Measured scan of single mutants.
Amino acid sequence: EVPFKVVAQFPYKSDYEDDLNFEKDQEIIVTSVEDAEWYFGEYQDSNGDVIEGIFPKSFVAVQG
């Protein structure tokens, strides 16, 4: 069931425009499960802007 919160276990950096880049310990709200390997989610950056994109499930852990 979406949405749910995950926390980055590792930093994720990608050159693909659709990917969500983040640092370790970033909290991310997952709004869609793309497939067995990928989530789609969002978070607010330090400027208060909402950043969204896809990212690999293996880089995050589900909270709770």
Rank of each mutant, 00 (worst) to 15 (best):
A36Y: 09
E42Y: 15
D49G: 08
I28E: 00
F22H: 02
S14G: 08
D45G: 07
D18M: 14
I29V: 11
E42R: 13
S58D: 11
D45Y: 04
E37C: 14
G48V: 00
F4T: 01
K57Q: 13
F59E: 05
Y12A: 03
G48M: 04
A36F: 10
F59V: 11
I54N: 12
V6F: 04
Y16T: 11
G64C: 12
D45R: 06
G48E: 03
D19F: 14
S14A: 01
A61P: 01
V30I: 03
D49S: 11
A61Y: 12
K5L: 11
K24A: 09
G53K: 00
V33E: 06
E17K: 14
F10V: 08
K13Q: 10
K5M: 10
K57N: 09
F40D: 00
Y16F: 12
K24W: 04
I28P: 01
F59H: 14
V33I: 14
E42P: 01
I51G: 01
E34D: 09
E42G: 10
G64A: 12
V60P: 01
F10I: 10
D15Q: 12
D35W: 08
V62I: 14
N21C: 12
K57F: 08
F10M: 12
V7E: 02
D45Q: 07
Y43C: 06
E27K: 04
D49M: 14
V50K: 14
G64I: 12
E34V: 15
I54P: 06
E52C: 15
I54G: 11
E27L: 13
G64D: 12
F10D: 04
I28L: 06
D49R: 14
F22L: 01
K24I: 08
W38T: 10
E23V: 07
Q63W: 11
E1A: 11
Q44S: 09
G64E: 09
N47L: 07
Q63V: 15
V50I: 14
E34K: 15
K5G: 04
Q26P: 02
I54W: 15
E27R: 03
N47M: 09
I28T: 02
F40G: 05
V60H: 02
Q63H: 11
E17V: 11
E1Y: 10
V7W: 09
Y39V: 04
V62P: 10
V6M: 01
V7Y: 08
E23T: 07
V2G: 04
V2Y: 07
Q9I: 15
Q44E: 13
D19L: 07
Y12G: 00
E1Q: 12
I28C: 04
G64F: 09
V7P: 02
D18H: 14
V60C: 06
Q26A: 03
E52K: 15
D49H: 12
F22C: 04
A36Q: 11
Y12R: 05
E23Y: 06
P56D: 07
E52T: 15
Y39D: 01
D18N: 14
F59M: 11
Y16M: 12
F4K: 02
T31F: 05
N21S: 10
A61T: 13
E52I: 10
V60R: 00
G48F: 05
I28K: 00
V62F: 13
D19C: 14
F22E: 00
Q44K: 12
P56M: 03
D18E: 13
D35Y: 08
S32Y: 09
V7K: 10
V30P: 01
Q9H: 09
P56A: 01
G53T: 01
V2A: 07
E34C: 15
S32V: 07
E23H: 05
D25P: 02
Y43L: 05
K57A: 15
A36D: 14
E27Q: 08
N47H: 10
I28Y: 03
T31K: 08
D49E: 12
V62M: 11
N47I: 06
E27W: 08
E34M: 15
G53S: 01
D35Q: 07
Y12I: 02
G64H: 12
E37M: 10
F22G: 01
V2T: 10
V50S: 06
G48H: 04
P11F: 05
S14K: 00
S14M: 02
K57C: 10
F10W: 11
V62Q: 10
V30M: 02
A8R: 00
Q63G: 11
V60M: 01
P11G: 09
Q44L: 13
E23N: 09
G53M: 03
F59N: 06
I51R: 14
I51N: 10
E1P: 11
F10Q: 10
D25M: 07
N21K: 10
K13P: 01
D35C: 11
K24S: 06
F59Q: 06
G48I: 01
D18P: 10
G64W: 09
D25T: 05
I29L: 14
G41W: 05
V30D: 01
P3K: 06
E42L: 09
V60T: 05
Y12C: 06
D18G: 15
V7C: 08
S46A: 13
V33D: 08
K13C: 12
V33F: 07
E17Y: 10
N21Q: 10
E27D: 06
E1W: 12
D18C: 15
K5Y: 10
V50E: 02
N21I: 07
L20V: 00
D45L: 13
D15F: 10
F4V: 01
V30G: 01
E52N: 13
F10L: 11
T31I: 10
E37Y: 14
S32F: 10
S58P: 05
V33H: 06
E37Q: 09
E1L: 12
K13G: 04
K57D: 06
S14V: 02
T31R: 07
F55Y: 00
W38L: 09
A36W: 08
Y12T: 03
G48Y: 02
E34A: 14
V6E: 01
F4Y: 03
V7T: 09
K57I: 12
V33S: 07
N21R: 07
N21E: 08
S46F: 10
V2M: 07
F40L: 08
Q9F: 07
D15M: 11
V60N: 00
W38P: 01
V30K: 00
E42W: 15
E1V: 11
V6R: 00
S46H: 12
N47S: 09
P3D: 02
V60I: 05
N47K: 08
Y16R: 15
I28Q: 00
K5T: 13
E37S: 07
F22R: 01
E17H: 10
D19W: 06
S46L: 11
E37H: 12
V30T: 01
K57P: 09
V33Q: 07
D18Y: 15
P56F: 05
A8E: 03
D19M: 15
A36T: 11
N21F: 11
V2F: 08
I28N: 03
P3M: 04
Q44R: 13
N47Q: 08
I29K: 08
T31E: 02
S32M: 11
F55G: 01
G48P: 00
G64V: 13
A36L: 10
A61W: 10
P3Q: 04
D19T: 14
Q44Y: 10
V50W: 13
Q63A: 13
K57S: 14
E34S: 11
T31N: 05
A8N: 00
V60E: 03
W38Q: 05
S32G: 12
S46R: 12
S46G: 10
P11K: 08
K57H: 07
P11M: 08
F4N: 03
E37A: 08
D35S: 13
G53A: 02
F22I: 01
Q26L: 02
D18W: 15
F55P: 06
P11N: 08
E27A: 06
V33N: 09
I54K: 15
P56H: 07
W38R: 10
V60G: 02
F4I: 04
V33R: 05
E17G: 10
F10T: 06
D18I: 12
A61C: 14
F4D: 01
Y43Q: 00
Y39G: 00
E34Y: 15
G41M: 03
L20H: 01
W38G: 00
A36K: 10
D15N: 12
F10G: 06
E42N: 13
F55Q: 02
Y43W: 05
F10N: 06
F40K: 11
I54M: 15
S32C: 14
K13W: 13
E34P: 15
L20Q: 03
Y43K: 00
W38M: 09
S14R: 04
F4R: 01
I54V: 11
K24H: 04
S58Y: 10
N21G: 05
S32L: 08
E17C: 14
Q26V: 05
Q26E: 03
V6P: 01
D15W: 08
Y39F: 09
A8W: 04
E17Q: 12
Y39L: 05
L20K: 00
I29R: 07
Y12D: 02
V7H: 05
V60Q: 02
K13L: 08
S58I: 10
Q26N: 00
Q26C: 04
S14C: 07
T31S: 04
Q9W: 07
E1N: 12
Y43G: 00
F4A: 01
F4W: 03
N47V: 06
E34F: 15
T31D: 02
P56E: 05
Y12S: 00
T31A: 03
L20M: 08
